[in-house]
Amino acid sequence: MLKVEALDVYYGGIHALKGISFEIMKGQIVTLIGSNGAGKTTALKAISGLISGKGSIKYEDKEILGSLSEKIVAKGICQVPEGRRIFTALNVHENLMMGAYLRKDKASIQEDLGYVYELFPRLKERADQMGGTLSGGEQQMLAIGRAIMAKPKLLMLDEPSMGLAPIVVEEIFEAVKDLNKKGLTVLLVEQNANIALQTADICYVIESGTIAFSGKARELLNDDRVRKAYLGE
């Protein structure tokens, strides 16, 4: 579905991604794990078209590297950015509707809105509240809900667990699994390697801008290199 090949990204003077390659099949949950500054977020931003790079990013066999971000969103790739980035001065309902900015099919937008409220009932309770007044967990739910409103085929999540209580993290990852079961392909970037590996099918480990190794998530949970570096054992 998505094939990244030899992707190079420079951030100012820093060589942030040094020719990384990875692949996502339809229906999978793929995770990129790695420490701070390894280049995970950069990879997502390059796919979303927020930053430019060299190499190739093919989505459904078509090159998207260098396309404008709105074209990429229109193709069905939607990113939930790190730190949620919801619109703080818009209420919950308006935030969700912004997710559907490019869509014109009113009936099915309402259907998806109903689905988001079903998935995260707390958002429905707070529909008229300003985004900035929500708790961290609720903001994360809103950010995911907003992305779902775009009716994506590939959902990219950047650090959804960041700064959240473990019980909320669990709730969010349950929702992600639920979405995946409904056919949504997911690319998950996480520092919390434990939960990422328990959720994902395939895992790529990024270290200072290169893919160090990759494999099935279940197998990497018991891999010594992963256990030492990322699971703190």
């Binding site: 078209g49 404008l68 971000s69 969103v73 980035r85 900015y101 907003r146 775009a150």
Partner: peptide, 9 residues
Amino acid sequence: DAARLMGIN
């Protein structure tokens, strides 16, 4: 950036 991720030009 968040606006661009909504597909806003």
